[in-house]
């Protein structure tokens, strides 16, 4: 028993050194030669840099709106709503998001609103929307920015990321890079 305790303590310290220390240092060392030195993917816009994977709050009519966030797009305290699928309060929230969307996008039929646009993501930081969610906002943005619908449709198509290798997963649009491109249109 005593022998076990001594070994256990020594072995734990050796493991601590190796798995918390050396393993971390190796990955950290490799991070120094990785893209962006291991701080995450960044995207430049003018003199500013943003995290391309972190959703920003886009609620203004001139921008493609992001998905709702249960944590107010707080990237230092991410999270979902954790509302159950049949929770009446939750369904009221979704209804009010639908109403608000219809008010900001006159002429859009309710059945054309994709659910990802009115439901909160798991992290509250989902950087993407579905292509349909982008397309359904095109008329509004065209009017606000005085651009042609066709041009905006093209922009959305150009920013639509295909499934991995063409066959795996979802199609999606990164709202941040789409809006950056939108701001760059003269």
């Amino acid at each position: 028993m005593k022998e076990n305790i001594v070994i256990a303590i020594r072995l734990t310290l050796v493991c601590l050194l190796f798995f918390s220390g050396i393993y971390t240092c190796i990955v950290l060392g490799i991070a120094q030669v990785a893209p962006n030195k291991g701080v995450g993917a960044l995207v430049k816009h003018g003199d500013k840099e943003y995290y391309s994977n972190i959703a920003q709050k886009f609620t203004e009519d001139k921008y493609f709106n992001s998905r709702p966030s249960a944590v107010g797009y707080n990237a230092a305290g991410a999270g979902g709503s954790n509302k159950g699928p049949t929770n009446p309060d939750y369904l009221k929230d979704v209804q009010s998001r639908i109403d608000s969307f219809l008010a900001h996008n006159p002429g859009v039929d309710k059945s054309a609103i994709p659910s990802d646009l009115v439901t909160a993501s798991g992290s509250g930081l989902d950087p993407h929307i579905s292509p349909q969610a982008a397309l359904v906002q095109v008329n509004r943005i065209a009017k606000v920015r005085n651009l042609s619908v066709a041009k905006l449709n093209e922009l959305v198509a150009a920013h639509t990321e295909k499934p991995l290798l063409g066959y795996l997963g979802t199609e999606r649009v990164n709202v941040l890079t789409l809006n950056i491109a939108l701001d760059l249109i003269k």
Partner: peptide
């Protein structure tokens, strides 16, 4: 319950999920 609100659910049930997955 979301279908009853009359919107499209092509991506399925999206509350708490991420579009990229």
């Amino acid at each position: 319950a979301i279908a009853k609100l009359g919107i499209q659910q092509n991506m399925g049930s999206m509350e708490g999920k991420e579009v990229r997955f």
